[in-house]
Design a protein around this nucleic acid. Structure first.
Length: 554
RNA sequence: GGAUCCAUGGGGUAGAGGAUAUCCUCUUGGGCUUCGAACCCAAGGACGCGGGUUCGAUUCCCGCUGGGUCCGCCA
């Protein structure tokens, strides 16, 4: 949404009509902006909306500040079409590096994402979290926010105790070429099978959990070793996905440094607190029917208590807290928010995404039912390499491998980020491996094509005066980019950027097929090259914000 | 049982209180001695059901149906 024109038009309508809302809507193919105020004035003025629209247009046209905008009534709609000066301004901004960067902010943001339990490799559900989180992180940085991205390491949960038990009691050899996280999953799955057979093992696991909570050095060391190994595996996967964290925060630190105990003591004094065998909060007055347990009868803290301590710490160090969590965390997320609020602490904003399941049902690390992100990455690179080899047989192999890695990454990230977080999805190998058409590679291709034109063109004089319908349509699409970045960070919906990037590529492809660039001459060639430069820059900025390589050749 | 999210062409998806509902796939028909066909153009096909709010609802509210998720001294 073009800010200056939007504001001018809105102000003018409000002044003329005296209404509280200018009822501005997207003009679609009719206009750049439209207003439906004529409808709402109809009853008060006792006139037909069509008549009112015509009168308003006459008034609006008298306004000097709207001189550059074509204003016309079409039936009851008032349409605004922006002029050439506007388009020139857009182009001038869009050819510059960093187009779409928003003014620097001072609000310190902390964003937590992925935070998968270190008991097995990241699977295709976890990476939905990673990719939504990482894309949001990139958008926040582009929007000018100082940002820290954190991974919360759950290193003292029951699953880790089960892993530790498995390493102590089962055949724990790492297989040849087996990645650390895959190794841990294998032991974890085996240990769970043993527990199924022999319930007394649960008792041994409980003891391990008590030991770790009390800081028994040997047990702490054991837990930490396996958790670190698993994280090493995660880091490889995340590097392949171009996902980065600034800091890994360990859950056990919040027990060790006393923060958990401190927040529990504070919570004990709350009217909602109850202490019998366990310590829990009754949040019924806020609509939660179950107990919010903080401490077990054996005195150990549960996840919720440590999570509260973690969030209190985040609140002390940052102005805005954002967590990316799966739909399974909706209830505990809401309880966390509720508790932080009654404590008078900063309340985190939570971005929930719905589950990724397999055609045969839900994924489960414990049951060994999952598709690992590593397998997906391996497969897609293989396919991308074949595709690159078919299209570009003349390139040396290492270059084809590099392109395949970028294309594969684009396919995975785009496929995941393009879908609204609130939609649950079913993982499908065939669709995941299809990187053609409505995909990341499609957008990369548009960028590569624009790069190729610019390279062939050589030096040219920038010209910002566009003429044809296709040129102007493309410039207006380019104009939307900064507003898209703004929208992503205010609505916390990275899919908006994914859809925009695809639409920009669509518009460029249509332009490309309608208008000659290199074969045109003089100022026509100059202005079209300028436009190609602007769209290339915008595609590149969009792709980079999506965490996708804007490769120049593919 | 309670809570919560989702429901758009055959399949997958976007969108928004307003003008002819987006894109991919699919089917059919066109376009490469070309600025890169991982592309473009044309045609076909969809807002689950019932109420309500509104000048106007596919979009907001309620109910129903179907599906996901959650309701543990797990995390």
């Amino acid at each position: 949404m073009p800010d200056i024109n939007y504001t001018l038009i809105k102000t003018a309508i409000l002044e003329i009509t005296g209404l509280p809302d200018a009822l501005l809507v997207e003009g679609g193919e009719h206009a750049d902006l439209a207003s439906t105020v004529a409808f709402s004035l109809a009853k008060a003025k006792k006139q037909a909306p069509v008549t009112i629209a015509q009168e308003l247009v006459a008034e609006l046209r008298k306004r000097p500040e709207l001189a550059g905008i074509t204003i016309e009534a079409k039936g009851p709609y008032i349409n605004f079409i922006f002029g050439k000066a506007y388009v020139s301004e857009v182009l001038k901004a869009a050819v510059k590096p960093g187009y779409g960067n928003l003014p620097k902010k001072t609000t310190r943001v902390v964003l937590e994402h992925t935070s998968a339990n270190p008991n097995g490799p990241l699977h295709v559900g976890h990476i939905r979290n990673s990719i939504i989180g990482d894309t949001l992180a990139r958008a926040f940085r582009k929007a000018g926010y100082p940002l820290e991205v954190q991974y919360y390491v759950n290193d003292m949960g029951r699953q880790i105790a089960i892993v530790a038990w498995g390493f102590d009691n089962l055949d724990n050899k790492q297989l040849d070429g087996e990645k650390e996280d895959a190794h841990i999953a294998r032991i974890y799955i085996a240990a769970n099978q043993e527990i199924q057979k022999d319930e007394s093992i649960t008792q041994q696991v409980n003891i391990l959990m008590q030991l770790v909570e009390n800081g028994d050095p040997a047990t702490v060391k054991k837990f930490r070793k396996e958790v670190s190994r698993c994280l090493d595996g995660f880091k490889v996967t995340m590097k392949d996905l171009n996902v980065t964290h600034d800091r890994f925060v360990w859950e056990s630190d919040f027990v060790r440094n006393g923060n958990t105990e401190r927040i529990i003591n504070k919570l004990k004094r709350m009217p909602q607190a109850h202490e019998d065998e366990t310590l829990y909060l009754d949040l019924a007055e806020f609509g939660f029917e179950n107990k919010y347990v903080l401490r077990r009868s054996d005195g150990t803290s549960v996840y919720a208590a440590r999570d509260l301590a973690f969030h209190a710490w985040k609140g002390a160090n940052f102005d805005r807290i954002i967590d990316v969590l799966g739909a399974d965390h909706k209830l505990i997320g809401a309880q966390l928010q509720c508790t932080m609020k009654i404590l008078g602490e900063k309340v985190p904003e939570i971005v929930h995404f719905e589950f990724v399941s397999l055609p045969e049902g839900s994924m489960s690390t414990r049951a060994g039912k999952f598709v690992s992100a590593d397998d997906l990455i391996t497969e897609i690179r293989k396919r991308a390499f074949d595709e690159v080899t078919t299209r570009r047989p003349e390139l040396p192999e290492d270059e084809r491998r590099k392109i395949a890695a970028s294309v594969g990454l684009a396919a995975i990230r785009y496929d995941i980020v393009k879908v609204s977080p609130e939609k649950s999805t079913v993982f499908d190998w065939k669709e995941a491996l299809d990187f053609e058409r409505q995909s990341g590679p499609y957008i990369q291709y548009a960028n590569a094509r624009a790069c190729s034109i610019l390279e062939k063109a050589g030096p040219f004089n920038e010209c910002f005066d566009l003429e044809t319908e296709q040129e102007i349509a493309l410039a207006k699409e380019i104009a939307r980019f900064p507003g898209i970045i703004e929208k992503v960070v205010t609505e916390l919906r990275p899919n908006i950027l994914a859809i925009y990037a695809r639409e920009l590529a669509d518009t460029f492809n249509t332009f490309y097929h309608y208008e000659q660039v290199l074969k045109s001459e003089g100022s026509i060639r100059d202005r079209r090259l300028t436009l190609v430069k602007a769209v290339q820059n915008t595609l590149q900025e969009s792709l980079q914000t999506l965490g996708i390589d804007a490769i120049q050749s593919m």
